[in-house]
Nucleic acid binder design. Structure first.
Lengths: 354, 354
DNA sequence: CTGAAAGCGCTTACAG
DNA sequence: CTGAAAGCGCTTACAG
């Protein structure tokens, strides 16, 4: 059923070699011949088998992408940006999701990535172990990272520490002292994790303002419910309740805002909240945040990788991606404390199946 | 650098044929030989080139996935489920995102999917045109769909119409009459779209209860901000304000709940809200919903596809996936109307860049 | 400008 | 149980 180049050649009355040249555009072919071959190919819906072509050209036109989550906003945006950029250049994208703590992780590096399917690989938010880094290097193909600088892998990353510092300074400049940082879990896994770097930036800013004694970091899952739980936890007792929260990402920030409101706290009247990301929901919640553009990062990473595949490797080991403070109405100058009416927490969900 | 099977064979002092048999497990190999070959392969980190193997076996060990969004919860979950199931079986997943209205769409069907890279293809939430359906059929490989039944493509789908009916009936059974449906846009594109089917189910339930004169459908983007905007729109005027909302998906439902609260309406006191999906945020918002399990659907679709690749095609044209009503506290019996204090809408976001 | 031939790296009948 | 040979579907020097 599926047609081969021999069919096209027969139909156009040329050799396979000429058919190949006409279709690929490589090498001389008389215009008339070229047109005839192309017409023949179209008639039978011929498209070259990429496996066969890869074998001889050594180019797979396929990029591998490795990330720890698919269904988080940041990663989805990055993925979208990569896919679009690759598609524009005729490349496929093969996706590996490294579930935390899954034994599949080793198979991805030692088997899936090793079967010579890719012209290059993009790692997103993944810190390879030394063994993994060696496995990657052995592949002898270009690599690009996003968000987790690693030796020998050119990486695009936000200045996480600097962004955290700026976010904290924004709160300090509004007069806040009692500023809690809700960070993502994972800070303990690696000192270069996003969570760790943002925590460090927070501590730096607090220390620089003479507020180290006020420093307090809560960690939680990097999601809306994670932020909600952490927020409820931090805010439910009136004792030393913070007047401001710096959340490690916008999902946490929004979750914390919702928790605050359920507790009868006004944002920003009783609590200022700032996040990081520029999440698609940030505007709806009028969230002050430090915006980065993950979709653009994905697109840039794909472009850099394809350049490297074409023989123009990236110059810089780490490229700082732009980040800008967007001030909305979730942050405001510190106001005199007011008594918060005792609004009940949310009722426990009564689940029942029908 | 990258090693070939000839290197393994030389190292183990056997022929390439024997090396291949030892590594693949196909055909007889003396145990001692097998061990020697495997050891040799491990020493040099050899993994067979899948392009070369595909060429002779005809199996690519690669599945193509086509979907219209990456960064929406439902699609992310499905993708996660597919990826995991494929990985378990040694398969790769190549992802195509069909951006609405993008000219890339035709290229995906006519070029990317046609280059003989896949053993099978999964379509998620995509209704192929007749030309696309033919292009797919010409590939002569197994196909599986999720969520958009199409001639000749076995599909997993929720009974969207039935689910919408049940959701609406739930509100009616609580005494609500003035029930607005906030649907996804896209109902006009196809009568088989999720949006159209859920709208139809709503209308059926309303009609069956003698409430067709109360029927009202607003459409919006299937996202939290989309639901927020639609909710604000519907609820801001006290004139004939609905007492209940059936949202086409949980994101819309949650957005509408947030809009309601900002307008000073209590949920469920002043407004009951029900959604569809079982979104990861549903519990946090205590949202009543009809739950489906997209991750499971992805996993099931991948399994069905791989079965078909192995020669056991699916029996049924359409498989109904389970859906169950989860009653939480966002829905309650109709209460006597109360005057809603005039709470201001959210302040316009004042953006400013630093 | 075109064709015959070699070869990419595998796997698989076919002999032995 | 093992090896020599053919062949998967392409592309690319190499002649002409």
């Amino acid at each position: 059923m599926s047609s081969a180049i021999a069919d096209v050649a027969a139909r156009a009355r040329v050799s396979k070699a000429t058919a190949s040249r006409a279709l690929s555009g490589n090498g001389y072919v008389a215009e008339a011949t070229r047109l005839r071959v192309i017409a023949a190919a179209e008639e039978i819906g011929y498209v070259a088998s990429s496996n066969a072509a890869s074998l001889v050209t050594g180019q797979t036109k396929n990029i591998g992408v490795v990330m720890p989550f698919i269904n988080r906003w940041f990663f989805g945006e990055v993925l979208d940006g990569i896919e679009q950029a690759l598609l524009d250049r005729g490349y496929d994208m093969t996706l590996y999701n490294l579930h935390a703590g899954s034994p599949d992780r080793q198979r991805v590096f030692d088997f899936f990535l090793a079967r010579k399917r890719f012209d290059g690989i993009i790692l997103i938010g993944v810190e390879p172990t030394e063994a993994e880094r060696q496995a990657l290097t052995r592949l002898a193909i270009p690599l690009v990272g996003i968000g987790f600088p690693t030796d020998g892998i050119p990486t695009l990353a936000m200045d996480d520490r600097g962004a955290a510092r700026r976010a904290t300074e924004h709160l300090i400049s509004l007069g806040h002292h009692r500023i809690v940082h809700i960070g993502g879990d994972g800070a303990d896994e690696s000192p270069f994790s996003v969570a760790a770097l943002r925590g460090a930036g927070y501590r730096e800013a607090m220390a620089a303002a003479g507020l180290e004694s006020e420093s307090r970091i809560e960690t939680t899952v990097m999601s809306l419910p994670g932020g909600y739980d952490a927020g409820a936890n931090i805010l439910s007792s009136a004792h030393r309740r913070p007047t401001a929260v710096f959340a490690s990402c916008d999902e946490i920030a929004i979750g914390a805002m919702i928790a605050a409101r359920r507790l009868g706290l006004r944002v920003p009247g009783d609590l200022s909240v700032i996040g990081i990301d520029g999440h698609e929901y940030a505007e709806m919640f009028s969230l002050t945040t430090i915006e980065q553009r993950p979709r653009q990062q994905g697109s840039d990473a794909a472009t850099a990788l394809l350049d490297a595949v074409a023989g123009n490797p990236a110059q810089a080991a780490v490229v700082d991606v732009p980040a800008r403070l967007i001030v909305r109405t979730s942050t405001a100058p510190l106001a005199p404390t007011r008594a918060v009416p005792g609004v009940a927490e949310r009722a426990p969900a009564e689940e029942q199946t029908a």
